[in-house]
Computed example of a mutant assay.
Amino acid sequence: MGVFPLALLVASCTDQEEPEVPEVPGGTEQPTDGAEATEAANPTADPTELDVPFECSELLTAGRVVQIVQTSIDGETRRVYNDEFLESSGRTGRLTCQYGVPTADSTASPTPSGDEQGPAVEIAVSSYVDAETAAGRIEATLGSTSRDIDPQTIGGNEGYLLTGDDDVTFIAAEGVRTYVISLRRGLVPEAAEVVVILELAAEMLDVPVPTPTPES
């Protein structure tokens, strides 16, 4: 099984499948030494009052991700949290968790940017001022993507599978939140990709695992 050192990062969140929403410059950098350092840097934070979870463990632990994909995942687990965005964006918070991020090798030769490998699994949850704005983000994504789109209902909510060359992504809106889950291609057999990504989504949303919708 892979080793998952936690790197707690704060940086601009890069939306892969969801339209980018500008952040307010000058976010506060969080420390990298675990829960005690996080609490010291943000003593008034109350996770029960946040628009999105504050920790990746509140979505899926790295260990649970490994259980679902049923293969070892080497690399780091990275967390990016932000709750400062331009008011006009409608977004109020975002947590991105990346599992199996390739660890940089200082002795290796530089890799061309086009050949860089992304995380094995990435999960991002965003919150908005209301459910209509959240649903609008999903519609905007569907209208701008060039990927193959397959509707897939989960937990009573309509979601969508987006298939690309590098990863398979599931997106859905639930109330004021949107969820984006990406699975790197090649991590599991192609025939298992949809089953695995839907199980990841069901686990995170705490709903029964749906039966994949047959492709038309």
Rank of each mutant, 00 (worst) to 15 (best):
A173E: 11
L162Y: 07
G159F: 02
G164K: 01
G155V: 05
T178L: 08
D166F: 15
R177S: 12
E158W: 00
E158T: 15
G156L: 03
G164V: 04
R177I: 13
S182P: 04
L162V: 04
I171C: 09
Y179L: 15
D165N: 08
R185D: 07
Y160T: 01
T163V: 07
S182K: 11
I181G: 05
E158V: 13
R184S: 05
I171M: 13
D167K: 15
S182G: 12
Y160Q: 05
L183S: 06
T169F: 01
I171L: 13
L162Q: 13
L183Q: 06
D166P: 02
Y179A: 06
G159E: 11
A173F: 06
D166E: 15
R185L: 11
V180H: 05
Y160V: 01
G155C: 08
G175I: 04
D165T: 14
I171F: 04
S182D: 11
Y160I: 03
Y179I: 03
G175A: 05
F170C: 07
S182M: 05
V180P: 00
D167F: 14
G164F: 02
Y160W: 02
D165Y: 13
G164W: 05
G155Y: 00
I181C: 12
T163K: 10
G159T: 08
G155F: 00
R185W: 07
D167L: 15
A172Y: 00
Y179V: 02
E158Y: 02
T178Q: 03
T163M: 04
D166V: 14
I171S: 08
D165M: 08
V180W: 01
L162E: 07
D165L: 15
I181A: 09
N157S: 10
A172M: 08
T178D: 10
T169K: 09
S182A: 14
E158A: 12
G175S: 10
G164P: 00
G159H: 00
R185M: 06
E158M: 07
G159S: 12
A172C: 14
A173L: 10
G156F: 05
R184W: 09
A172E: 01
G156R: 04
T178N: 12
V168W: 00
V176L: 11
L183R: 00
R177Q: 15
I171A: 09
D166S: 14
E158C: 05
T163G: 03
I181M: 13
G159D: 07
R184K: 13
V180C: 12
E174I: 15
D165A: 14
V180N: 11
T178V: 07
T163C: 05
Y160S: 06
V176H: 01
G175W: 09
F170N: 01
T169H: 02
V176G: 06
G175L: 05
G156C: 06
V176Y: 03
G155M: 03
R185H: 13
D167C: 11
G155A: 13
T169W: 02
T163D: 14
E158H: 03
I181H: 14
V168Q: 09
G175M: 09
T163H: 12
G164Q: 02
F170W: 06
V168A: 10
T163N: 02
T169Y: 04
Y160E: 02
F170V: 02
A173G: 10
